Simulated assay, not measured.
Amino acid sequence: MIEKVYAYSTEDMTAVERIIGGPAVRINHLSLGHGESVDPHPTAEAAHMIITRGVLGLTLDSQEEHQYAEGAIVGIPANTKLGIRNAGEGTMHLFVIKSA
């Protein structure tokens, strides 16, 4: 088998999973229950968030929150302070991809 298969949680529960942690690319999976959030924090690297279920509430630097529904891919520049929250009714799932 040439390919490698990676698994991630599809459960309706809060989770942060490092799927791939290599030097060229890092992929994390994040799921947040209704009303849950991640405290604002800086990101030193550019990132892309792919929303696969629910609605992401995203605050970048001093901007007001913007909301993105499943199917959206949001590019975030390096050195940005970001806050993440579940802005929908059910569990929100997203992938965060960072590359070198």
Rank of each mutant, 00 (worst) to 15 (best):
A7M: 07
V96R: 07
E17D: 08
T91A: 12
I76S: 04
G90V: 03
H34S: 05
E65F: 03
P77M: 01
I2C: 06
A87M: 01
P40M: 08
S37F: 13
E65D: 00
H48I: 08
S31N: 09
T14N: 15
E70M: 12
A44D: 15
V96P: 03
G35H: 15
I73S: 00
A72V: 07
E36G: 05
G33H: 11
G35A: 09
N86D: 12
T91I: 15
T43S: 09
M92Y: 01
G71K: 10
S31C: 09
Y6S: 10
T14Y: 13
E64G: 14
I27M: 03
L94W: 07
T14H: 14
A72C: 14
H34E: 14
T80M: 01
P23T: 08
G22P: 03
G75D: 14
D12Q: 15
H48Q: 02
D12M: 09
V55N: 06
N86F: 04
G35Q: 12
H48P: 05
S9Q: 10
H34D: 10
N79R: 11
D61I: 07
H48Y: 06
G54S: 06
A100K: 05
V38C: 09
H48L: 00
G88A: 07
M92N: 00
G88L: 05
I50T: 14
T10G: 13
A47I: 01
E65M: 04
Y8H: 10
I73Q: 03
R26T: 15
F95A: 11
L82Q: 06
